[in-house]
Design a protein around this nucleic acid. Sequence first.
DNA 1: AATGTGTACGACCGGTCGGTCTTATACCGT
DNA 2: ACGGTATAAGACCGACCGGTCGTACACATT
Lengths: 212, 212
Amino acid sequence: MNVDGRLARGERTRSAVLDAAVSLASASGLDGLSLGHLAESLGVSKSGLFAHWRSKEELQLATIDRAVAQWQELIIAPALRTPRGVRRIHTLHEARVDFYAARVLPGGCFFATTEFEFNARPGAVRDRLAEVFAAWTGFLERLVAEAVELGELPAGTDVALLAYEIDAYGIAAAMRSRLLDPEATYRHARLGVLSRLRALCPDPTLLPEGPS
Amino acid sequence: MNVDGRLARGERTRSAVLDAAVSLASASGLDGLSLGHLAESLGVSKSGLFAHWRSKEELQLATIDRAVAQWQELIIAPALRTPRGVRRIHTLHEARVDFYAARVLPGGCFFATTEFEFNARPGAVRDRLAEVFAAWTGFLERLVAEAVELGELPAGTDVALLAYEIDAYGIAAAMRSRLLDPEATYRHARLGVLSRLRALCPDPTLLPEGPS
DNA sequence: AATGTGTACGACCGGTCGGTCTTATACCGT
DNA sequence: ACGGTATAAGACCGACCGGTCGTACACATT
């Protein structure tokens, strides 16, 4: 983007390509998505992509950044608009499950798909993914620690363990929703975290009602 | 195998190929593993593989069956040797985490890797994977239901939800151990399920001691 | 020793991949 | 109106994929 806010030449093309790449890659895989198919689905030629990115890897890195921005907008931001403590944790998890359930992206979780694809292949993409996962985990743990500090979770709570548990509900939702009943999967993911937080939080008014 | 128990001609080759395929595919992906590389790592020629399997897909299906057999031997069987109830559930989960932690296969969970790879590609492999996942989920739910019937879990327990939770701890372990600290991941996976079962089970002697 | 047989091999096929290069076209200042 | 420039297109390249085929070798039988 230019300093005056207008899109630089080619910026719109880049944005459109990245949006399409995120969507297509979340289903077929970031590496499994061939440049020919990506170009075709955008109505441009394959060589046109190389005008904006030097290599496929560079485009893949930009695609990851785009997916991160989307994740921040649709999942992180709603949580940050919610008061700190267990309510923020709950909002974060709900937004995540909403994201999966609404099928904003086809194929479940873009990051999980990509991580599985690049796990055995060292390189810049794998390194970038590791950063993203570490940042996500750190964010989740910070939210849990905040809730402990606020007294909304018992003192002495194993922060890393509880963050692991909350993340696990989300990971499992993204994974199981594709082969098993999606509705039941999302319900379990929501209900599990909610009842877990309700059981730990001494103030029952902070979280919405829900079946035990 | 022949009726007299001896290996039929080519049986040993087939077994060796499948063992190598499971191991290699769990890291690089069942589809990402090229027949050329598989043949090379076995010291045989690529065309030799086609003497035993008509196509790559047929070999992939056989590879999945092999992985299922390994899973049954190392994870299902130990559980079935344990008394029914929460102890059996706990053994199943421990054997699963042991399997991941011991790195019996490189690259985490063969089934998860493969599922991500074939999720967007309808076909016999995808269908077979769906069967495997459904069977696994059903098995886990049956174990939970058994524990409820035995009174080792509270009556009225949401069986599907608890099975989801236990599975989620395992899925998250396989996933997070590759990018985050593996030891902490496995500890969380073990500790989470153990403390969860201990909190639910009215008889504290059934499960091993553990930090809260 | 000669022969028949079956198995495994290297060479090869069409197709697709990421990436490059030459060419055509559309736009813009003079 | 014209010419210079930047952009995008399509043909093309080598590499690699799954899969096929003719052949040569190893072995058992006579």
